[in-house]
Design a protein around this nucleic acid. Structure first.
Length: 203
DNA sequence: AATGGTCACAACCGCCAGTTC
DNA sequence: GGAACTGGCGGTTGTGACCAT
């Protein structure tokens, strides 16, 4: 494998490489990315192949400018999740984490006057609330821990949001607060769908 | 037309967590 | 238990396009 890594080509992909990668994925499916250079002869690392497929070649990936709806969604999700680009992208059909990240960095952070440094590592501890957790296993649920760090980058915006919705989130945001873990799933659970979701997205 | 600055975005890097042996 | 491997994530960089001078 080292040999492949060492002779890996870098930089932009060409049409031929795209074609080789696309054919491989069509035939074998995704996963086992490190096999691709060996099997196809592509002079790219497995990671590079994965990235190229995920961000560009996947059939359902949407190209072009973000719509106003998408932009609005990114802003709202970012205020909730911080720089969790993969989570944000997961809620925006056809958009990848890289697209969302680039869009934020080039458009929205400028537009909203976000200070990048401010967003980093505002550590908050959340408590697991038995019974509140909705369907769907979460890492917190599985861990069985009473308290666990669940998010390292809750932004100031979320703190403000929390204060505005204290019926949903508790009011002691100084260092810890109780918070349904399913919020991580961005309110697709019954609990959140009925409460947090409506409150939050009605902002 | 040439040059320099800025912008947008694709791709890379380093780190971490999960899995396998 | 731990080393090696693999995939995923967020941050950063490199490059081409565009614009102003």
């Amino acid at each position: 494998m080292e040999a492949y890594e060492n002779e890996s080509k870098k930089g932009f992909w060409n049409a031929e490489e795209d074609s080789v990668l696309t054919n491989y994925v069509k035939k074998h499916g995704t996963g086992k990315w490190n096999r691709i250079p060996k099997v196809t002869g592509l002079k790219r690392s497995g990671k590079s192949c994965r990235l190229r497929w995920m961000n560009y070649l996947t059939p359902d990936v949407k190209r072009g400018d973000f719509s106003e709806e998408e932009e609005d969604l990114v802003v709202r999700l970012h205020s909730l999740l911080g720089n969790r680009w993969s989570l944000i992208a997961g809620r925006i059909p056809g958009r990848t984490d890289n697209q969302v990240k680039n869009f934020w960095n080039t458009h929205l952070s400028k537009k909203l006057g976000v200070d990048k440094k401010r967003k980093r590592k505002a550590c908050v501890t959340a408590k697991y609330i038995p019974g509140v957790e909705a369907e769907g296993a979460s890492s917190m649920e599985r861990s069985g821990e009473g308290e666990k760090l669940v998010h390292e980058s809750w932004s100031d915006d979320l703190m403000e949001l929390g204060n505005m919705h204290e019926g949903i989130m508790r009011d002691d945001f100084g260092c810890s607060f109780s918070f349904p873990n399913s919020v991580f799933d961005l309110c697709t659970s019954p609990y959140c769908t009925q409460s947090f979701h409506h409150s939050f997205f009605a902002l």
